[in-house]
């Protein structure tokens, strides 16, 4: 593969658009966007009341927490890791939020986000300093995090009455829900982080070849630590926003299966699980695709179980396309 391939990878032939569709690399690169477009077109034509502002807004509001968590997950996966604890982190943030809201909005938010950072720091320590495999390291807080959250919240659902928090969940700016706006801004910020900052490029380098990165003097431990902390903070933020929308703190069920939704979004978005590449926009599209798919099927009166099967098919297709790319 490395033998004197001085010419660039086979150039796409714009003259024959159909030829491109046979190239697995094309799917890897643009497949997720094409799938989102296809779904939108399908719904515009065949689904009543789909392309309405109301419905689109609902879809976006629902997908926003997944996008936020998936952004952090994409960074972690870019280092050849995985973070199973994001759902529990959301619950932890949700449990802490009402406890400190009494001191005001800012202390409440800070404490909740700090909890996310602490979870991330624990994960980061286990992975980078102790050298545990990420799946095992984060499994600990996947299990324990929710337990701690329930202890903190006394196992109870708490109503949220702070108007500022509630505004976070329901408010909008120029017609765009705040939750969606926040997710959008974060996506742009993470994309900038990955593409343009030293830290971002170091994340990709560590994921691409850890021993090479380490020999090149990169602060591998610090990079891993930072990635897990970022992922934890993003998950905590998603927990706060989800709580605000629910108008209640529900640590027993908030964020369950979130880790799987986030991983799915990242994988469907074309970020390889073996690290070395992070597709931020793809991750956002991946989350959107899963959301739209489910909404489409539900709107056509298919049961949720069918939606799950369809989602499984998409995941397999995404993994298959990724495999094609690697063997190329």
């Amino acid at each position: 593969m490395t033998q004197a391939t001085l010419t660039p990878a086979p150039a796409p032939a714009p003259a024959r658009p159909l030829a491109r569709l046979r190239d697995p690399a094309w799917y890897q690169e643009y497949g997720v966007y094409a799938a989102v477009a296809v779904l939108l077109v399908f719904n515009a034509l065949f689904t009543e009341h789909f392309m309405t502002a109301d419905n689109l807004r609902t879809q976006l509001v629902q997908v926003a927490p997944i996008v936020i968590v998936a952004l952090g997950m994409a960074l972690v996966i870019g280092t050849e890791g995985i973070d199973l604890s994001v759902g529990s982190t959301m619950a932890l943030a949700a449990a802490l939020l009402p406890l400190y809201l009494g001191y005001g909005l800012v202390p409440g938010l800070v404490v909740a986000l700090l909890a996310g950072a602490v979870v991330g720091a624990v994960n980061g320590t286990l992975v980078s300093l102790i050298g545990l495999q990420p799946i095992v390291a984060t499994l600990a807080l996947f299990v324990g995090g929710r337990g701690i959250a329930l202890v903190m919240a006394d196992g109870q659902l708490k109503q949220i009455i702070n108007p500022d928090i509630l505004a976070l969940g329901t408010g909008s700016f120029l017609g765009v829900p705040l939750v969606v706006l926040i997710a959008g801004v974060l996506a742009v910020a993470v994309a900038f982080l990955v593409r343009r900052t030293t830290f971002g490029r170091q994340i990709v380098a560590v994921g691409g070849n850890r021993s090479a990165a380490s020999l090149a003097g990169l602060p591998v431990t610090r990079v891993l630590m930072g990635v897990y902390i970022l992922c934890g903070v993003l998950a905590a933020l998603a927990g706060i926003l989800a709580t605000a929308r629910l108008t209640a703190s529900d640590p027993s069920s908030l964020g369950t299966l979130m880790e799987l939704s986030a991983i799915t979004a990242v994988v469907v978005g074309g970020t390889p699980l073996n690290g070395g590449s992070i597709r931020v926009l793809g991750t956002v599209a991946g989350a959107l695709l899963m959301q739209l798919l489910r909404a489409t099927l539900v709107k056509h009166d298919l049961p949720d179980s069918t939606a799950q099967i369809a989602q499984a098919a998409i995941i397999i297709a995404a993994v298959y396309v990724a495999r094609e790319r690697r063997s190329r």
Binding site: T197, R201, V204, A205, G208, S211, A212, A213, A216, G276
Partner: peptide, 27 residues
């Protein structure tokens, strides 16, 4: 231990020098 195959020639060259080529963390 040397190359990072998925990154470009440019990024592989500047890998170790990145902090020196950055201002406020932006390369």
């Amino acid at each position: 231990e040397g190359i990072i195959p998925g990154l470009s020639v440019r990024e592989n060259i500047v890998l170790a020098a990145m902090p020196r080529l950055s201002r406020a963390g932006v390369v």
